[in-house]
Every structure is written in C-alpha cells, then in structure tokens.
C-alpha cells in the first residue's frame, strides 16, 4: 500500500503519476534500467500495491504475458503467465498453482503530495 510523504529523497525512483494506474489495472516498471521490468504495481480496491516481478515458483521468473499484463481478465488475481500461478493482489499470497502458499515480495511505494508515485531504492 502506498503511503504519502511531503518530499522524497532524490535517490528514490519516480515511476509515474499514481492516478495513471486505474482500478484492477497493472503496470510494470524497469526501475533498475536493465531492459526488463523489475517490479509492477497493481491497484486493487482503490489501493496501490508494488511487487517484485519475480515469481516464487522459479526464482526471478518474469510474470507478465505482455508488457503490463500481470492480472487475469477480471482483474481479481495477479497471474504468473509462466505456469499460471495466481496471487492475491493485496497480500501477494499464491492461492492457486505451483507455488501455492508462497508470496510475492513487496516493494514499498510512496505517493508524494503531488500524486507522483515513487519506489524506494
């Protein structure tokens, strides 16, 4: 869940405007500039959640099937499109598939008073 701060340290990485990610939408970010999205953000029941783009089934496996496509069609689950593991968007808990019971690793997000979304780094 994103928390709000007045100002953010210069080292934090700017992602986008927080309101660019609508309800039940997801977006990936190449925050480490490595040519591969290292994290993604989903909005679920109004709140933003950041997750490392690394499936617990196979350490480090990227999860989207197309750029920014991390969710099922209804937007109710995060899906790893390698072998179909399904995760709760708010807790990161795997509820179906090969890594059931394991969790995604959370990325701490910050929204500043101007509504810009950052990730700590």
């Amino acid at each position: 869940m994103a928390t709000t701060r007045e100002a953010v340290p210069a080292s934090w990485v700017h992602l986008c405007r927080a309101d660019e990610i609508g309800e039940a939408q997801s977006r990936g970010f190449d925050a480490d500039a490595e040519g591969q999205d290292s994290l993604f953000v989903v909005r679920w029941q109004g709140r933003l959640h950041g997750w490392r783009n690394a499936c617990p089934h196979i350490g480090g496996a990227p999860m989207a099937w197309r750029r920014d496509a991390y969710l099922n069609a209804e937007g109710t689950r995060i899906v790893c499109h390698a072998h179909g593991a399904e995760f709760m968007p708010d807790t990161g808990l795997c509820v179906q598939g090969p890594c059931r019971g394991e969790r995604l690793s959370r990325i701490e997000l910050v929204v500043d008073t101007d509504g810009e979304l950052f990730v700590k780094s």
Binding site: M63, W65, H81, A82, H83, G84
Partner: peptide, 9 residues
C-alpha cells in the same frame, strides 16, 4: 520460450 495467456509457456 515465452510467457502466455494459457497458463503455460
């Protein structure tokens, strides 16, 4: 190999 919307590669 690529990810896919079919729950498999």
């Amino acid at each position: 190999y690529f990810n896919s919307p079919f729950g498999c590669h």
